[in-house]
Structures are given as C-alpha cells and as structure tokens.
Write a protein that binds this DNA or RNA. Structure first.
Lengths: 252, 252
DNA sequence: GTTTACGTTTCATAATGTGAAACATGAACG
DNA sequence: CGTTCATGTTTCACATTATGAAACGTAAAC
C-alpha cells in the first residue's frame, strides 16, 4: 500500500504468505496444507520453510508440523514504537474502555497510514473493532488527521498529492481544502473526530499520545457505532491520552 | 544447527541478516548502515527492505530510517508455546528469583534443543545468564533431560543417535546408558540437575511446566555459579513450576 | 553554483529459485 | 507379507528472478 508494487521480491512475498498461513494455525500445519494455502509447489514451500527454520522464523514440532518460530519473539521484542507504548498504554485504555463501554484503539503512524497496534474491547456484542495490524489511511481517521496536523500543511499537501485522498465513504475528505480545515480545527482543540469517513456507520474520537521529547508516538481513539458516540467522551479520551503521555515521560 | 545448510535460500539469509541488524538498532538505521552491516550492495539492500516493508516486517520513520515493523508483533503473538507461557510464568519466575537471588530461566523444547524464551535476572553482578533465544542441546541441561524423560527411552536413544551426544564439558553425558540413568532418577524425583554439563562452573536445577492437558510446555530452571547452588532450592523451583502449571490449567 | 553523500531507479545478465520428477518413508489395506 | 497411497525430501535442467553497477534524483554543505 505504501510501497511500490515493483519493489516486490518474489521469495519475500512467498515467505510472508507462508508465515501468515502459519499464524492462522497455532497448533501447527503440514507442508501439504501450507502448500495448498499459499499456492506453492510442495518442493518450493519445503525449501523456503527449511530456510526460515534455519533462522528461527519457523519451527517444527515432533510430528513434523511447522510452527512460527522463536526468532519472531526476539525480533518483536525489538520493535520500537508499538510494543513499548502498548505496554504503557494498556491500563489507561482499559480504564477508558470501562468509562465509555466502547472499544479503545492505539495506533501508530507508518508512512501514509495508521496501523492498529493495540486494542481493548468492550463487552457489547455489537462493537467496532479493528484487527491489530490493520491499516487505514491518515485522512480518514481521527488520529490520522491529528498526525497530519503535527507535520503541517505542506507535508499534508504532499500526502494528498501522493495518495490522491481516496474516498472510503461519501463523507471522506477528498479535497485538500476541507481536509486542512478539519485538521486545523482538530489540532487547535486537541481532539479529532471520524464522522463516518472511513466506514459508514462508524464514529470515532481520537487524541494524540506524546513521548518525553514531545513527539507524537501514537494515537488513542475510541470507536463506536455512530449513533452511540457521545461528545461527552472527549475529555475522557483526552485524559487517557494525557496519562499515557505522562507515563511515557511527556511533561506537557 | 538443526537444519541442513544446503537448504539455504540466499534472499532469506539476506533478509534475516537485515532484520537482525535492525534488531540491534531500535532507534532506526539508514540504508547505508544496513548495507555495510550486512555486506549487501545498497541497491540490493534497498530492494529487500522495500519488499519487507510491504509486508510490515520493516517500517520507516519520518527521517527515512528503517525500523523493525509491526507485522513482527502480530506474528509473535501467534507463536504458540513461548509467548503465552512467558506471560503466565513471569510473576512466578520473579517470585522464585526473589527467593533464591539467582537467575531464573524459562525454556521450551524445539527439536533436539531447548530454547531460552524468558528470563528474570538476579541483582548480582556475577550471575549465569542465557540470552533469550539461545539454544542448548537437551542432554546437557536439567530441563532438557526431564523433557527427554517425558518422551521415553526409545525416543531418547533416537536423540542420542541423531546428535551423538556432543560433549560440552568433561561432565557431559556421552553415553546413552548414563544419560538414561540420570533421566530416570530425575523424572522419578520430579527435578533435574545440570552439574557443570553444559558449561564448567555452572549449576542448574530444573523442573517441568505442564498445560491443561498435562503436556509439557516449558521448563523452568534456576542457574547459578556451581558453588552458590543449594539443594534447598529444589522445593522452591518445583513450587514455582507447579504454580505456573496450575495457571496454565494443569490439574495435576 | 558546485560538490558530496545518500537514496532510488534502470538495465543487462549471471545466478538463483523453481517445479517436475525421482526417491524415501511410513501407514493403511488386502 | 507385499502393495498401494500419501506425504515429505532430494535432485536437476533451465526459465525466471535477483543482482550489482551505473545512471539519476535530492538535499545539504561549502
């Protein structure tokens, strides 16, 4: 999405497909299964898996089934932004979830998108959920708009030019002018809304999380079916974001 | 180690090298740095990194520096044995560490080796530590011997045949006979010792961790300089392992 | 304006990864 | 017991891919 398709390397693509297939099978998967899931010839799958196993990305159990391997744990422990902020943010997210009764998300910016890196879920059967790891363009999310506000109008224009502001719903900002206005308002008041811009029926309130140096390291948001969203939530969202920031050393 | 070197795929090797170089640089690394660290031509490194970024294994920050990416977190969350047990085991490991004042390790079996997946460290300047992710053959570690006891004499003989029981010190079991005896004694009493078998000067006491179904899912051990190890520790190690097992649903 | 350093793209081609076939192994079946 | 089936593993010819060098792009320093 934020990388040119011509940069693809076939083996890496295939490796990624195999790892994703394994992620869906925590109790292990056979070569035959993995080959079928990824569309790879058995001998090709076998060799890629063997190479991955050498490096610990893949493991094999006693029955010969393939599993995700421990090297992923070691690398994940070194992932900078998500993991550290996640651990710190979790309690405040739970607090916010308990105050509002809705799903709370933590996102980080990655190029032209936000990535959902943590989530605490409400008990409601009907709720808005983003899969951890999923992505959304900056301009259609509350926190994404605040992140654009952080880098200024020039960078936002570059973003708009690069991405052409694709529409997700009839509410999506498709003009740089209205997007900049929304960003300006949101930045000034310290929170932003997503008014069914990413998906019809979904509303969101977001605020930014900062680190010791004042840099934005994450976005905190609460999402709900639009008819359940209340503006009373704004100060609570901001409070939770402020607490997380303080925990990260932000001195405001 | 447990994979044939002829199975190597060059791109995978190179990818692994790049990810490892990034793991050592949590605050990011430039293309130039990564190329130099891995010995890759800049354009080659650039393209592999771009492909990795497409799949979320790598990310780039605002300054263009490369970072490990969030997809590693998602995959790590799906690594079966280590992560779940780690979270559950951590408090008990800390308790044990506080009781004994020595380093406590959590290991999982992977093929013919144990892998260190979690560790809580004592305050002592001189202590025994295994790097998380490091490996050791089953027959030279306390928990490894218990794990062999779990699969029986026949499987242990196959292990011995496969690995030829390489010696790590003069104390290492190099004969299947003495290994089976040690395993028998250890299994019966419910704990095992590593008497300078892996490394001279290092002593260890280990016990197994079981899940809801009674299967062994990890090994818990305390390691110390051999002159500091006390047999008084045995019941405490066993207690901690029992608690972790109970938490995992083991009904014993 | 020029130079330097780094990142990004293009391109010819050597090298690599591929998939088919052969081989190996274990389990099920008659 | 021998045969068949299913799956995994190895070998090999070669088409395709990944490669590294060169060209190009960009920003910062002088």
């Amino acid at each position: 999405m934020n990388e040119d398709k011509t940069s693809s390397i076939q083996v890496i693509d295939r490796m990624a497909a195999l790892l994703d297939a394994l992620a869906a099978r925590e109790n292990g998967a056979s070569l035959k299964y993995l080959g079928a899931e990824t569309g790879l010839h058995p001998s090709t799958a076998f060799r890629i898996l063997a190479s991955l196993a050498q490096h610990g990305f893949v493991a094999r159990d006693e029955a010969g089934l393939y599993l995700l391997g421990p090297h992923l744990l070691q690398l994940a422990a070194k992932v900078r932004v998500g993991l550290d902020v996640r651990a710190v943010a979790r309690p405040e997210m739970e607090w916010l979830r308990d105050q509002l009764g809705e799903t709370v998300n933590l996102t980080v910016r990655q190029g032209d998108e936000v990535v959902y890196v943590e989530r605490v879920t409400s008990n409601r059967m009907m709720r808005v959920e983003q899969v951890i790891g999923s992505r959304a363009p900056l301009h259609v999310t509350a926190v994404g708009k605040l992140m654009l506000g952080e880098v200024g109008a020039a960078a936002t224009r570059d973003y708009a030019k690069r991405t052409r502001l694709p529409a997700y719903t009839v509410n999506t900002h498709q003009e740089i002018k209205t997007l900049l206005e929304d960003i300006g308002v949101s930045t000034a008041r310290g929170y932003a809304l997503d008014d069914e811009e990413a998906e019809l029926g979904v509303g969101c309130i977001g605020a930014l999380v900062r680190d010791a140096g004042g840099a934005v390291v994450a976005g905190l948001s609460v999402s709900a079916p639009i008819e359940r969203r209340k503006m009373d939530w704004v100060p609570l969202v901001q409070e939770a974001a402020r607490r997380i920031s303080m925990k990260l050393g932000y001195s405001g």
